[in-house]
């Protein structure tokens, strides 16, 4: 019967991205964003401080 295909996705979900990799991406995104944001704020404060 073709109506029930079984749990092909269960097997498949293990093939998807593991949590450690997801976490690595998350950390990398946060690292990039926060470094950029910090530099932006530091530059602006520098302008503010000079006179």
């Amino acid at each position: 019967m073709t109506i029930l295909q079984g749990c092909a996705q269960c097997l498949d979900s293990t093939r998807a991205t593991p949590p450690t990799v997801q976490a690595a991406y998350r950390h990398a995104i946060i690292l990039l964003a926060s470094a950029g944001a910090t530099l932006f704020i530091a530059g602006t404060l520098l302008l503010r401080r000079q006179r």
Binding site: L32, L39, F40, L47
Partner: peptide, 13 residues
């Protein structure tokens, strides 16, 4: 000024 700060941040990456 803002565009220049963005340039420094973005173009390095």
């Amino acid at each position: 000024f803002t565009a220049a700060i963005l340039s420094i941040i973005a173009f390095s990456v």
